[in-house]
C-alpha cells in the first residue's frame, strides 16, 4: 500500500506540471486514483437493488449472431442472481453469486444445484464472452489497487484512465485492467483486460449511459474477446431499481425456482 502511495505521489507530481500549466484539470487534483475507483463502485452499485432483463447477443467472427435473454437481480455490490429465460436449451439455467466468493449454478436438467469452484470462475459463462467472475457482482475498489494513468480533458468525453492491479493476496485471471471513467458521473466507459503475460485479451465498452431515475446505467455493453474474435453485446430491455428485494431472494431456495 505504501509503495502504491509513493507511486501515486510521483505520478501526481509528474502530471501536475502539465495539469497546472494547462489550468484545466481541477478534478484530477481532487481525487486520488483509489477515490475515483471507489466513486465508480458507488455509481455502479448505487441502487439498493436492481432487477434487469437483458438481451445478450453472441457474435462470432463471421458476424453470425445467437441471442440469449437473461434476468439479473442484484442487491448491494455482493449479491447477484442470473437466470436464463431463453433460448429453450439453456432456459432455467441459473447462477447465484454470494459474498465470500460463493457461487452456485442450478442445472434444471439434473434438478441439482452445483457449487462452482474457483477454477470455473475464469471460464466463459454459458457461451458468452463474460466469465463467471465477470458476471458476478463487482466491487472494484475492494479487489484492485488503482493508479491514475491519464486525466483527459481534451476529448469529447472527459475521462480518467486508471490502471487497476489486483491487491496483494487477491488472485485474478487478469494481471491488470485499464479502465476509462467518465469524469462527470464516474461511470466506466471502457475496460481493457490484460492477461498475466501482459497481453490485451478482452475489451468491454459501455454505451448508452443514461440516468434512469436517480441512477446512472449503461444500457448497452459490448465485451470483445480479442483472441477468439468473438463478441457479446448486452442490451438492457427492462430495469427496476430499489424494490426492496429481500436477502432470501439470493439463496439456493430461489435459485431453483422458475
Amino acid at each position: 500500500m505504501e509503495r502504491i502511495k509513493i507511486l501515486f505521489l510521483m505520478f501526481v507530481l509528474l502530471i501536475s506540471g502539465f495539469a497546472f500549466a494547462d489550468g484545466n484539470n481541477s478534478q484530477s487534483q481532487e481525487f486520488t486514483a483509489q477515490q475515483i475507483l471507489k466513486n465508480v463502485d458507488e455509481v455502479i452499485n448505487a441502487p439498493k437493488d436492481q432487477e434487469i432483463t437483458v438481451e445478450m447477443i453472441l457474435i462470432d467472427k463471421k458476424g453470425d449472431e445467437k441471442v440469449r435473454k437473461v434476468k439479473i437481480w442484484q442487491k448491494g455490490s455482493d449479491k447477484r442472481m442470473v437466470k436464463f429465460l431463453s433460448p429453450a436449451d439453456v432456459k432455467g439455467l441459473a447462477f447465484l453469486n454470494l459474498p465470500n466468493d460463493m457461487m452456485y449454478l442450478y442445472l434444471p436438467a439434473f434438478r441439482k444445484i452445483r457449487r462452482i469452484a474457483s477454477h470455473v470462475k475464469n471460464t466463459n459463462f454459458a457461451g458468452t464472452d463474460f466469465t463467471y467472475d465477470d458476471i458476478a457482482s463487482t466491487n472494484y475498489s475492494e479487489i484492485y489497487d488503482a493508479k491514475l494513468l491519464k486525466s483527459n480533458d481534451q476529448s469529447k468525453e472527459q475521462l480518467y484512465e486508471l490502471e487497476l492491479a489486483p491487491k496483494e493476496g487477491i488472485k485474478k485471471e487478469y494481471s491488470k485492467l485499464i479502465m476509462a471513467v467518465r469524469k462527470d458521473n464516474f461511470y466506466p466507459v471502457k475496460i481493457e483486460f490484460y492477461s498475466k503475460e501482459g497481453k490485451l485479451v478482452k475489451v468491454m465498452e459501455n454505451s448508452k449511459i443514461e440516468k434512469e431515475g436517480k441512477y446512472w446505467i449503461a444500457k448497452q455493453a459490448l465485451m470483445h474477446d480479442l483472441d477468439k474474435e468473438h463478441k457479446t453485446k448486452m442490451i438492457i430491455l427492462e430495469i427496476k431499481f430499489d424494490q426492496n428485494l429481500g436477502d432470501e431472494l439470493f439463496s439456493k431456495r430461489y435459485l431453483k425456482r422458475r
Binding site: R114, R115, I116, A117, S118, H119, V120
Partner: peptide, 11 residues
Amino acid sequence: MSGEIGKIGVW
C-alpha cells in the same frame, strides 16, 4: 459435502 481445495472443486 462440496467445496474447493485451492482452485480444485471437491465433493
